[in-house]
């Protein structure tokens, strides 16, 4: 790993001031540190944001659940509030990586990184999340731009993620046997306003499958999924799974999720 200057600000403003095009915010570091080690990334400044108190914590208020950006996966998985309000989200967190990753990795880090096979982006999309940063609120469907790409600006810090509590929801993941990331992950959430079917792992970025969503909005049952055609076009194809296979697995796991709702 190349050398860098480490900073540990206590306030968001201070963190923002330290940021530049050659810096990175460090939360759990579960992707940032391996990337630096493998020489895929290097930075002049590494800015630890875990010391900023207001970035952590879990709170339910009315129809939403708000999770601070530096909240760890294990905290989300074990949180009584999350289990009660959106149990599928706690289950999703419980399925990320392994126990040691969950003890260190954070929700904010995961969505800022936007790995195409990460779990949380699908939750954000399915649960109509609002991403609160130090300067604005962003709807999840606008936040995720593409592979490892979000609409965050240089120095912009995610403070929290606010999820809409659904009537029913479930997340089903088909893990890559090697990395245990999602080959496909399907998050189904039934809201008053309709159903979202957010898919991760299948394409370069998590997305809401409109066809599946509208079919399930009309008829919330696994047979409704059966009649939707999921096209492999635009889907990832690699040594672990072809696009055609992924397309089929989207349906299979959408059905599983609906059945488990």
């Amino acid at each position: 790993m190349k050398t860098f200057n480490y900073h540990s600000p206590k306030e968001t403003k201070e963190a923002t001031k330290l940021a530049s095009s050659n810096s990175v915010f460090l939360a759990g570091g579960m992707t940032t540190i391996p990337s630096m080690k493998l020489g895929l990334a290097s930075y002049k400044d590494v800015i630890n944001i875990k010391g900023i108190k207001k970035l952590s914590g879990i709170k339910v208020s009315g129809k939403t659940l708000k999770i601070g950006a530096t909240t760890k996966h294990a905290e989300v998985a074990q949180s009584k509030e999350v289990k009660k309000s959106i149990p599928s989200l706690a289950a999703l967190a419980e399925g990320i990586g392994d126990p040691q990753v969950r003890n260190r990795g954070t929700i904010g880090g995961s969505i800022a990184n936007n790995d195409p096979a990460a779990d949380y982006p699908s939750a954000c999309i399915a649960l109509n999340a609002t991403i609160h940063t130090d300067r604005r609120k962003i709807d999840a469907d606008k936040f995720f731009r593409g592979m490892f790409e979000t609409c965050l600006k240089t120095g912009e810090i995610i403070e929290s993620i606010e999820f809409e509590i659904p009537a029913k929801s479930n997340y089903q993941k088909f893990p890559n046997p090697a990395s245990r990331y999602a080959i496909v992950g399907v998050y189904v959430a039934k809201h008053k306003g309709g159903v979202n079917v957010a898919v991760t792992g299948a394409k370069s970025c998590a997305y809401n499958d409109k066809d599946l969503s509208s079919a399930l909005t009309k008829n919330f049952s696994s047979s409704a999924v059966q009649n939707v055609r999921v096209s492999p076009s635009g889907m990832n194809s690699d040594i672990h799974a072809s696009a055609e296979y992924r397309a089929n697995m989207v349906k299979v796991f959408a059905k599983k999720a609906v059945e488990a709702c």
Binding site: L26, G29, M30, K50, A74, Q100, V101, R104
Partner: peptide
């Protein structure tokens, strides 16, 4: 996982945590 240690009672992978952190 060969590098797992406990930090404040919880297991983590020590290869992926900065000491200064």
């Amino acid at each position: 996982g060969a590098c797992v240690v406990h930090v404040d009672g919880k297991s983590i992978k020590s290869c992926t945590a900065l000491t200064v952190d």
